[in-house]
Design a protein around this nucleic acid. Structure first.
Length: 158
DNA sequence: GCCAACGTTGGC
DNA sequence: GCCAACGTTGGC
C-alpha cells in the first residue's frame, strides 16, 4: 500500500464537506504530475492525508481519507460551465482523470505545517521542500508513521 | 495582499 | 526547441 497527501483549499472543499458526503470525486486536478500519480500509482484502499492549503489560521493536515475507486475521466473537463472545463479534452481521449475518496477520520487537533517543519524526521517530506506545490504527493511509510505517532487517538485504520 | 517558485503557452 | 510572458499555487 502507498500513502499520499492530497491538498485542497478548505474554502473550496474541506474535510467537513467530505465528512458530510462520505464519498466524493477528487475533481479539478489540472497538473500532469499530480494526474499521473492518480493514474499510474494510486491503488484502491490507499490512505491519504487530507491537507488544507491556504487555510486559516494556518495550513494543516486535517485528517485521513481513503482512495475509493480506480481512476476515471474527470467529468468537469467536459462541462463548459465548470471552472475546470478543458476545451481541448475529448470524451474519446480525456486529459484529466480522478479517483473517488472516502472519509475516514478528522483529527481532533489539526497537524499544522509549522509542526511538520519543526520535525527533523520529516525534513525530506515532499510537502516541506522549497517550491513544492504539487497537489497530490506520495508520502513514505516512515513519514506517515512519524506523523501518526503524534496522534494517540487515531483508531486502527486498516 | 505580496511575491517566490513553478507550470503552461505560443511566437519565433 | 528556446524562452519570454503570463497564470497559478500557496505560505506568509
Amino acid at each position: 500500500m502507498q500513502h499520499w497527501l492530497l491538498k485542497s483549499e478548505p474554502d473550496a472543499f474541506s474535510i467537513d464537506d467530505l465528512k458530510a458526503k462520505k464519498i466524493s470525486m477528487w475533481d479539478g486536478v489540472r497538473n500532469y504530475q499530480a494526474r499521473n500519480f492518480m493514474k499510474d500509482k494510486m491503488q484502491v484502499g490507499d490512505l491519504a492525508f487530507f491537507y488544507h492549503s491556504n487555510a486559516k489560521p494556518a495550513p494543516h493536515i486535517a485528517g485521513i481519507i481513503k482512495i475509493n475507486s480506480k481512476t476515471y475521466p474527470d467529468p468537469t473537463q467536459f462541462d463548459p460551465k465548470s471552472k475546470y472545463f478543458d476545451e481541448k479534452s475529448t470524451e474519446a481521449n480525456p486529459r484529466w482523470w480522478l479517483i473517488d475518496v472516502k472519509f475516514i477520520e478528522k483529527f481532533k487537533e489539526p497537524i499544522y505545517l509549522s509542526e511538520l517543519k519543526s520535525n527533523k524526521k520529516l525534513k525530506d517530506m515532499m510537502l516541506l521542500q522549497k517550491g513544492s506545490r504539487l497537489s497530490i504527493q506520495p508520502v513514505s511509510l516512515e513519514e506517515w508513521n512519524v506523523i501518526l505517532d503524534k496522534l494517540p487517538n487515531v483508531k486502527n485504520l486498516t
